[in-house]
Simulated scan of single mutants.
Amino acid sequence: MLKTRYLLIYVALMTLVVVASNFLVQFPLNAMVAGINLADILTWGAFTYPIAFLITDLTNRQFGPQTARKVVFAGFVVGVGLSFYTAVPRIAIASGSAYLAGQLLDIAVFNRLRRQAWWRAPLVGSLIGSALDTIIFFSFAFAAFFVFFGANEPFALESAPILGILSMEAPRWISWALGDFTVKMLVGLVMLLPYGALMNTLRPMQATAAR
């Protein structure tokens, strides 16, 4: 019963994060910092999605990789399904593909490193998973090559200086991807704080050998 209760909480949190991120990624961060228009490099989704890796890592630590995969798949089915009502279909497709690939990679990396320093598995797993997630999501969601997934957002294809500061120009979604990953790395570091704080509370409840 205790395991079931925890799993329901993890699935609910994962669903909330996925749906919120799919909705927020459609909105650039309209603010100016040091003369840089953040709308050219960031969307609000970059700040919420890294929490998904925290949820996956806590599940992996407490119940092992097999259960973590179940939470990921449950979050995929429920979260991405709901995202078709909160985001355009192309965003939902891109999110689902990136989510599965990134989260499953995070689980594999975490499990390989789980017996090393406490911070290494969650940090390395989330960073590598975030890199793959970012590449897949922004390519599927905005690149002209993947237009068969659905209509594109014209604003995303407009040329702009990369990251708003470089002389070289590229479609705006390239800067979004680079800015998104930069934020994910920073948030990934911040997520070590709640992970470390919960380690003693959410102790492993079964053998967590690689499976």
Rank of each mutant, 00 (worst) to 15 (best):
V80F: 00
L100Q: 01
A46E: 01
K3C: 15
L166K: 06
F142L: 06
L192R: 04
M205Y: 11
L113E: 03
R203K: 11
S83W: 00
S159P: 06
A151D: 06
K70R: 15
V109P: 03
L42Y: 01
L24W: 05
V190N: 06
R69Q: 03
A98I: 00
G196F: 10
V25S: 03
E169G: 07
A177M: 10
S95C: 07
L42R: 03
M1I: 15
D180I: 00
W119R: 09
A197W: 14
W118H: 13
L58G: 07
V77N: 09
V11H: 12
A170F: 05
F146K: 08
G164V: 00
L166V: 03
M191Y: 04
F47A: 08
V190D: 05
G75H: 00
R61I: 05
G188T: 12
L192P: 08
V183T: 09
I165A: 13
G179N: 00
G150S: 01
F23K: 08
S97F: 13
I107C: 05
Q103H: 10
D180K: 10
L198S: 14
D57W: 05
T208Q: 14
I55M: 04
W44T: 05
F155R: 11
L29I: 02
A34D: 04
D106G: 02
L132K: 11
A121V: 07
K3E: 15
Q103I: 09
W173G: 02
L186S: 12
G102R: 05
A156T: 06
V147Q: 13
K184D: 01
Y49T: 02
V88M: 09
I41C: 08
N152W: 02
A207G: 14
R114C: 01
M32V: 03
W173V: 01
L163M: 15
R5N: 12
M205T: 12
L193P: 08
T182A: 14
F148R: 11
T208V: 15
N60V: 11
L7H: 05
I107P: 02
R69F: 03
V109H: 02
A20D: 08
F140K: 04
I135A: 15
V183Q: 07
N152D: 04
P122M: 12
V183I: 12
V190F: 13
W173D: 00
T201E: 10
L58R: 13
I9S: 15
W119Y: 09
E169T: 13
V18M: 13
